[in-house]
Design a protein around this nucleic acid. Structure first.
Lengths: 209, 209
DNA sequence: GGCTCCATGTTTCCACTGTCAACATTGAGC
DNA sequence: GCTCAATGTTGACAGTGGAAACATGGAGCC
């Protein structure tokens, strides 16, 4: 087992858990300033390590970003699952709650959302785990739809297709809001209200047989 | 009036219409490879000019990107207006046609869409014309909604809010498709079918009083 | 307990980028 | 025909991602 760096005294040559330290530094930097303006060198510096040390743990800069994006997808998925689980009322309200969680996540972490869906990661094929975590998110939505259909609350049809509609809606809304493409987006209550109203419209279409 | 470069003979010191040439070169490069991987130097080289010549026409690289994004917004707006004008049937079909045009635009020019909505342009306040062209797009959607309400076809409510729902939906769908986040996205007929079905759901919600 | 090896970290180097400052060219207007 | 400002060029600089060669030291073997 690798030893963690001695607490207090002298900096060890071997960091101990550099990958975590890099992830932490990168997460902080990206949350603050976005993908475009962070460099591997700065990440390494914050982690207290030379500027090429990251290459022992990641193939290149894109791989670091892919790692963060994957964490993001898992967090977002977990957030949505929590929202579904804690929502009271029928399946329609569960779906709406999931949508609200999605939008909130995006608005609270705009730079992470941009990383997850932007052009920073050119070739997704290189990161199977990333693809899997993204598909898991889609699956969560699809499952809610399927459950609703089983209850007879949602209209018939391919659940993946209906889930795509739901995903598109909240995804687009989150991006438009955090891209300031719509006025009043800084106001948290506006965000909450908008996401509620907007999702309600689609749910209307989903429930209408 | 500035003279255009002599046809045939020798390259003139003064290009004649460098800004257009830069725009053209940048447009081509970005359509091919996306924002992340194009450099000002390469744009200048294609335009046949030294690597700093662009600074006589743009403040910095971001300004070039903002210019292209603005053109993109105007094109997209025009495409949507065309779709609305040429759509037969009621206002619901017009809206659906506009949505289809939006998604098609995005799928056909994924890198441009990424430029228009990504993080490449950090501070929109710097580009009032860009903001205006983006708002014009929103206004087009809002106007369709308003017309539909006037006809009694769409439900009552703030047209801007309903338009936001429509925008979010097609925007999210376009991004998810061209980010390959949904399977079958390379197939043009899939795109057409998906955008039709997805928009139909929202329109159901919009027409339901 | 001592030795060795390889995972991990460092140093040095390179090509490339955006941007600035100083200089060159030339067409338009007096 | 002269001048000057708009336009384009050259050369420099700091910062970037990445490769190659080297350094370090803990884990596992004897």
């Amino acid at each position: 087992m690798t030893r963690t760096s001695k607490p207090g005294k002298r900096a060890a040559y071997h960091h101990g858990d550099l990958k975590s330290a890099l992830r932490a530094a990168a997460t902080t930097l990206i949350a603050e300033r976005g993908v475009e303006t962070v460099s591997l060198r700065e990440i390494a510096q914050i982690a207290g390590v030379s500027h090429t040390a990251a290459y022992r743990h990641y193939a290149d800069k894109e791989a670091v970003m892919a790692d963060l994006a994957e964490v993001g997808f898992r967090e977002l998925n977990a957030t949505m699952c929590d929202a579904v689980a804690s929502a009271t009322g029928g399946v329609a309200l569960k779906l709406q709650s999931a949508g609200g969680a999605y939008v909130r996540f995006g608005v609270e972490q705009p730079h992470l959302l941009q990383l997850m869906f932007g052009a920073a990661i050119a070739d997704w094929q290189r990161y199977p785990d990333l693809v899997a975590s993204s598909e898991a998110l889609y699956a969560t939505l699809t499952e809610i739809i399927r459950a609703g259909q089983e209850e007879g609350k949602f209209r018939a049809g391919d659940p993946a297709e209906l889930a795509l509609a739901a995903w598109s809606l909240v995804h687009g809304l989150a991006l438009l809001i955090c891209g300031r493409r719509v006025t009043g987006s800084d106001d948290a209550s506006f965000v909450e209200r908008a996401s509620q109203r907007v999702t309600a419209l689609l749910i209307e279409g989903l429930t209408h047989q």
